[in-house]
Design a protein around this nucleic acid. Sequence first.
DNA 1: GTGAGGGGGAACCGCC
DNA 2: GGGCGGTTCCCCCTCA
Length: 226
Amino acid sequence: MAVSNSLQENQSDLEVILDFLEEYYRQNAKDHSRNADDVYWTRSVSVDETTCEEHWGGGEAFVILFLSDESTKPLFHQVTPRDADASIRHIAAALSGHETGTPASAPAARQPPLPRPAAASGSGRKTRLFHFLFEVLEDPGMAHCVSWVPANVGVFRFSSMNKDQVAALWGQRKGNKRPMTYQKMSRALRNYARSGEIFKVKKKLTYQFSGDTLRALQQRRRQGEA
DNA sequence: GTGAGGGGGAACCGCC
DNA sequence: GGGCGGTTCCCCCTCA
């Protein structure tokens, strides 16, 4: 039963991902239509029960990894377009390690470098909700609560089971007197639409960082790492 | 019909 | 005191 649920959830994730990819590539195809190098394509390979999908175009590429034997959500592995061609072979090779039961040598996609939490208050300012969400999204340990779908377009989705956990953490971080709930946090998220920092996506529990916000957050993270 | 999630107005609070 | 960034409450709508 758990396997069935997991498969259903992955299936649902896949639908969401493909919807966004379609829209994303459609938009990028317009933006980059003059560049002959911008070929948008997707391919997938199966290694036993594991499916690996590769998507690239418009100067960006990433690999999505579905592990049917685990309850985890699909895993995203961002690569450079130059590496895209080799990425499936690389991951397929890494999967051999997975299949032979060597978790320590699991694919790089499964263990992205854990970013150091950004300075809680940035440059002396208080952490804002979208900073906090970005931190949580970059923490693989929180993937069961909120995860990218996919990261390079800034779309993320809360888990219907664990969404309140993120909210509770946010409330804790802010030192709120009363417990924060997803309902209240999502109200704050909707307010971001006015300032254009985060938009609601027409999918359940799904939001998207604006391009500028995402770039700023990524830059902020890089500065934190440096 | 029901519950979960979404949308938004409005008042309020704490911090800078 | 004013602005900012939420927080809280509430009501209504949509959708599965």
